[in-house]
Design a protein around this nucleic acid. Structure first.
Lengths: 328, 328
DNA sequence: GCGCGTTACCAACGCGCGTTAGTAGACGCT
DNA sequence: AGCGTCTACTAACGCGCGTTGGTAACGCGC
């Protein structure tokens, strides 16, 4: 395990190529407006390759005054499968633009977001849901150039959430449900998303001339879900939109616990299309949205903002899709 | 959104406190062996607080020659719920030591690990399973001081995997199963973990004087699992250890598809205790391990290694635990 | 031969910080 | 008074890089 001396610097490359450090910098960042003959250029590139040279991020950041780090803040509430995949996509999409994603789990024990932003010196900070004004201010003060989504804008994610809820409800209604229920997580912290989705459901009900959905808080326990089912039944609910697949599966378990079945006694629809959704009894009807697409778009918004450009969101390409199975 | 001028530097603090930058540095890093009167010390701290000063990470890294960034490499294979939580724990544990975790999803499209290591200038690189010698070399060359786990050592995770498998098998055997099956994911990339766990299961069988487990590849599809169930039945298998809860739930679905049930026709046991495990039909017996503990221990190993100390692993505190429910 | 434009390059500054070497002043002892 | 020691600081260097403001060499027209 020869921990070989030290990494090579642009100085080393310059020496090896027989040019100055400046020239090396010009070549490697292929700076426009410089006249560098092909021969020299090749010599530098070759030397860099041979020495396995990689610019020192901190030095570059310090000199250039901006880093290529993007900080993603995720609420501490156990990140669900949907979020994981989104992070995954965002990471690769940003990588393609030369940016590196650092994810930070915001929570009680961890450091505060602006602190982290300052210590990693991120040039952009991204969240899943909009930051409040105070935090946004603090982030700018901590050195962030770009903060997304901003307090006012709901962010594409917010809108997406609403259309997800709408899609759920519309499908249940199309299947003949006249009274809908909504399975809402007991955990706080998901509120942002929850509210968006619930709003979508309520909207669809209103549009169809139905009463607003009967909201019940549900935990990921059979007993919990079972009680919720009882209450829904007594309210005449025949179709339930769940916050996500995990809660939908809980509702399914609750139904089983009551000796009932989906969709016969109550239709159930989730969100996310997690791997086990198709394995549920009965296989879960759900909403999938193209995280790949979402991650890519978010990444582009970040890149655009960093470049100072205004990024016009491409109009809802790759929106949420219904995945009909047997639970609704 | 007043993007207020610029972040304050130690120079600003020095000016505000009426001392030199050196003194500020001494105070804030409370460097030992310096005699700084309490009065001055307070003046500096107060000024720093008032100016909302936070040292510039890149500058500090550049000067000190080492960063406080730890890079975690995760295989591209969709990170399961277990991994997510581990990352979560590791993040908070490292944060407590003043280190920041950057997670990188290694995969086909992304940049290579040593590249990323160099660009974020990580001082430690951690993986879930040991890196090969070549990669390790490259990481050291990319500037990493600490690479963990090293090629030779299996790492605590490897050992943990084996004991997980053993625990699964021992429980099924204690429940009266004489021929065991193993549900192995079709995806490659999980191989490391899979093999560890399978080895544990095989070991337990051998110890009990039973034949080695009947391995079947399973995908997360009902049809797939159903076929595996048929094959296991024809091999006389009465208990199945699944790679993790998701695959266990698949097996459960496969049993249902064949009109069979657990544990009557075939006992099933998973790993991870994911949220939906208790919601499965029947509720899934599984193995939970204390990720909290694991993350903390890993973090301590990293910190110790960075400090140049040898870290003797505390002997398997917080090992895997059986969570008996009804599927086995 | 001189002036001018172009090409090919480089010295040197500064980013914000940690750190080393050193200094000015107070104090005690001979 | 002179010397040493301790306290309380500070000037200045260098980390590796991007970038500005040059300069030296060369060709070309007159």
């Amino acid at each position: 395990m020869t921990r070989s001396s030290r990494r090579s610097t642009s100085e080393d490359v310059a020496r090896a190529a027989g040019v100055s450090r400046t020239t090396v910098s010009f070549v490697l960042n292929n700076r426009p407006g410089q006249s560098i003959p092909e021969e020299t250029r090749q010599r530098v590139l070759e030397a860099a390759r041979r020495l396995d040279y990689r610019p020192h991020a901190s030095a570059r950041t310090l000199a250039a005054g901006r880093s290529e780090l993007v900080l993603l803040s995720i609420p501490d509430t156990r990140l669900g499968p949907g979020t994981s995949r989104f992070v995954e996509e965002l990471t690769t999409a940003l990588t393609e633009h030369g940016l590196t994603l650092v994810t930070h789990l915001a929570g009680a024990h961890g450091r505060l977001l602006p602190d982290v932003c300052a210590t990693v010196n991120a040039s952009a900070v991204v969240g899943l849901s909009p930051f409040d004004t105070e935090t946004t201010e603090a982030l700018y003060r901590a050195g962030a150039e770009v903060v997304l989504p901003l307090p006012d804008s709901r962010g594409d994610l917010g809108d997406a959430m609403e259309s997800v809820g709408r899609l759920q409800a519309e499908y249940l209604i199309s299947q003949g449900c006249r009274v809908l229920g909504y399975a809402m997580p007991v955990q706080p912290g998901l509120r942002e998303m929850t509210e968006g989705r619930l709003a979508g459901v309520a909207g669809a009900c209103a549009t169809a001339g139905l009463a607003p959905p009967v909201v019940e808080e549900v935990g990921l326990e059979i007993a919990d879900a079972s009680r919720a089912v009882v209450r829904w039944r007594s309210s005449g609910v025949t179709g339930v939109c769940a916050y996500n697949d995990e809660f939908a599966i809980a509702v399914l378990a609750g139904l089983r616990d009551q000796g009932l079945g989906a969709p016969g006694d109550m239709a159930v629809i989730g969100v996310d299309d997690i791997p086990t959704a198709r394995l549920a009894a009965p296989p879960l009807t759900t909403i999938r949205f193209d995280v790949h697409e979402a991650g890519r778009r978010r990444a582009e918004a970040i890149v655009a903002a960093l470049a100072g450009r205004q990024h016009e969101q491409s109009p809802d390409a790759g929106g949420p899709q219904l995945v009909p199975r047997s639970s609704a």
